[in-house]
């Protein structure tokens, strides 16, 4: 199972309901966005005048850049496939890509809010909720979860449900019969560019060339963000050391850092 979402911008009317429903569903503080709508144009494109919308959210990428930069000490976690019951044990930091459904999730308990993951995302899909800062963290990273807890109960993601245009198509990209797979066949594309190719499972479809051109030129990220793993973690350590740290993954941080720097020098230059 590989969950993905296609936004059909022919249908989308730019009503922003998806943004508000997500905030309501997950009690996201107003100033943060798990998803967003950017209004694009009217502007000239090579195909004529266009006025369209970029409803964005985490793309739950195939090779996400957020997952590897998390500095929290890894723990063994056993994931279970909701459908088959099959289990898999992995070593994960405070964020990982689910082996069974492909979604990228966050462990809020262990997250220290250092912000490395948020910086690493070329789509700016993550934010750090600093209101949750306490003695053990600077805040908590957060983002779209593809509403997995809702999906587990047989419900649609909140944004999909509220969309009056049925412009958000959510489903299993590995199932060739699914509606989303038809969109891929029709030519739905992720917001990629030569420098940013991390396999977004969120895609966009529009039959009007002008609309798609406006979307791609304004909203596909053109470069990968620079993230310095070690610096971000050291920054976090310095700040949290001001308060009292009892025992958190941070204590293992030094060890983890040592391990990392021994094995992958190149990581720092990403």
């Amino acid at each position: 199972m590989r969950y993905g979402m296609v936004i059909d911008i022919d249908r989308c009317v730019g009503c922003h309901a998806c943004v508000i429903s997500c905030k309501a569903e997950w009690e996201v503080p107003t100033k943060y966005d798990r998803n967003w709508v950017h209004r694009l144009g009217p502007a000239q494109t090579s195909q004529g005048l266009a006025y369209t919308y970029y409803p964005g959210l985490c793309n739950h990428c195939e090779t996400p850049t957020c997952v590897p930069v998390c500095p929290v000490e890894k723990v063994r976690m056993t994931m279970q496939d909701a459908k088959t019951g099959e289990t898999k044990t992995m070593e994960v930091a405070a964020t990982w890509k689910d082996p069974f459904n492909g979604t990228v999730q966050i462990d809020y308990e262990r997250c220290i809010g250092c912000g490395a993951c948020a910086t690493a995302c070329p789509y700016h899909a993550r934010y750090i909720n600093t209101e949750l800062a306490d003695e053990t963290c600077l805040g908590k990273a957060d983002k779209c979860t593809y509403c997995m807890p809702r999906v587990a109960e047989g419900l649609e993601p909140a944004c999909v449900q509220t969309c009056l245009a049925r412009a958000r198509i959510f489903g299993d990209l590995d199932d060739p019969a699914s509606e989303i797979s038809q969109y891929v066949k029709k030519g739905a594309v992720g917001l990629t560019s030569p420098a940013v190719q991390i396999g977004p499972n969120g895609m966009y479809y529009g039959s009007k060339k002008a609309d798609m051109e406006l979307l791609m030129t304004t909203s596909a990220p053109k470069e990968m963000p620079k993230v310095v793993t070690r610096r971000a973690a050291l920054e976090a350590m310095r700040l949290t050391a001001k308060q009292q740290i009892k025992e958190v993954g941070l204590l293992g941080l030094a060890g983890a850092l040592v391990a990392k720097s021994l094995s992958s020098e190149g990581e720092d230059s990403k």
Partner: peptide, 26 residues
Amino acid sequence: LLKLEGNPKSIDNGVSLCARGNGGVA
């Protein structure tokens, strides 16, 4: 009240609400 949603029984708007409808909580 935590959230407003379209009434699934509705044959008018169905389960959908616009941004303002969703915003009724605020």
